[in-house]
Design a protein around this nucleic acid. Structure first.
Lengths: 199, 199
DNA sequence: GAAGTATTGGATAGGCCAGTACAAAATATG
DNA sequence: CATATTTTGTACTGGCCTATCCAATACTTC
């Protein structure tokens, strides 16, 4: 019925996500977004209405994309509970090194970056992140409860507290990675955190 | 010999620090800095040369101000090693609640915020933060080694690894606070982390 | 092939950005 | 009190920012 798009909306969204992820919301201009996606301004505004809306969608996509494999790991009934947490840590470390610009520093995690840069003044972003937090805490509790049942998690602390702790550890690893920590350091942080699950 | 200043440079720097801390570097305009400090543009540029330079000084001041009490805690020979770490955690929690805007969300830690927002593209800021990281890791090692000697830290992991872990935990607590965690949650994260020191 | 419709590129708008220019004001020194 | 010197307020600059406008384009349907 009319002229069709010459670009793939999801690819564009991915490119925008990468730009926000690597540079932050404020430091990414609409011009940057045009260059990152390869689209013109018109196409961007026609498709995504505003920079803020594009960010919202990019963040939502990031959360969706990242949570699938994490859920798979944490709900993997084949593995003991503690091993699921260990595998999650390993995945976190891998992503910190897989997704990188030319730079030697990690670009971190868009969710963490958003919490730090935007959560206080952007209620929509805060809501997305909070929803994701609840979801991930739930997944962690599942794995921790499994660990308690199968004897790999022996601490007396309740799964809720432990889930918060594991989640905080992941945040700390991501900040450490952005501060320049290498693979060995991240792995040792993860290993040490696991000690708290079987004291 | 000439007209004297009508403002206190340190007070102005403090106000600017608070502004950057609460809102981030990019989202804080020079206009915001004028309002926060109560100074006119001329006074700001006359005293601090540029927004970036003002930020650099604000960050340096933040690091200085924060590290003094933390060093005191971690080097306090009266306390066993583990208790020093515990006291440090308690202080982190307190600061997350002491320094707050009207908001119900924490403004976090300027160092962490800087790592996340700026470290990748601002080498000066990155250098300040890295220097501070080395300093704090050193303090943590001191306390952890003391803990090993006095028997309160019983884990077999080496102090360097443990220092990284404790530091990451603090980062994770700060991100959690910015994501909306309350006092009880932060305290439980800290308590759980301590479990890793005496497995 | 004509009509209708959505996309696209380029120009543009209005505002805010960091930073500067300059003159008026204020004070220490002589 | 005069002079030298610094601070301060105001106005301004050039540029980049997000967002819009509009005409040209390209495609689908009839």
């Amino acid at each position: 019925m009319a002229r069709p798009r010459t670009f793939d909306e999801e690819r564009a969204l991915d490119a925008a996500m990468r730009a926000f992820w690597a540079n932050g919301y404020e430091a990414t201009s609409t011009q940057d977004l045009c260059e990152a996606t390869g689209l013109g301004r018109s196409s961007i505004y026609n498709t995504f209405t505003s920079k803020h809306d594009l960010f919202r969608r990019a963040l939502a996509r990031y959360i969706d994309v990242m949570s699938v494999p994490q859920a798979e790991i944490l709900e993997d009934a084949e593995r003991p509970g503690l091993e699921r947490i260990r595998a999650l840590f390993a995945r976190i470390v891998d992503t910190e090194f897989d997704y990188r610009e030319d730079d030697e520093r990690s670009i971190g995690c868009l969710t963490v970056n958003t919490v730090v840069e935007l959560a206080r003044r952007d209620p929509e972003a805060a809501a997305l992140v909070e929803r994701d937090l609840d979801f991930r805490l739930g997944l962690l509790r599942v794995a921790l409860e499994a660990g308690r049942r199968d004897g790999t998690v022996t601490t007396g602390r309740d799964p809720d507290t432990l889930a918060r702790f594991i989640n905080a550890t992941i945040g700390g690893m991501r900040v450490s990675a952005q501060a320049g920590a290498g693979r060995a350091v991240l792995e040792s942080i993860a290993d040490t955190a696991l000690d708290a699950l079987r004291p």
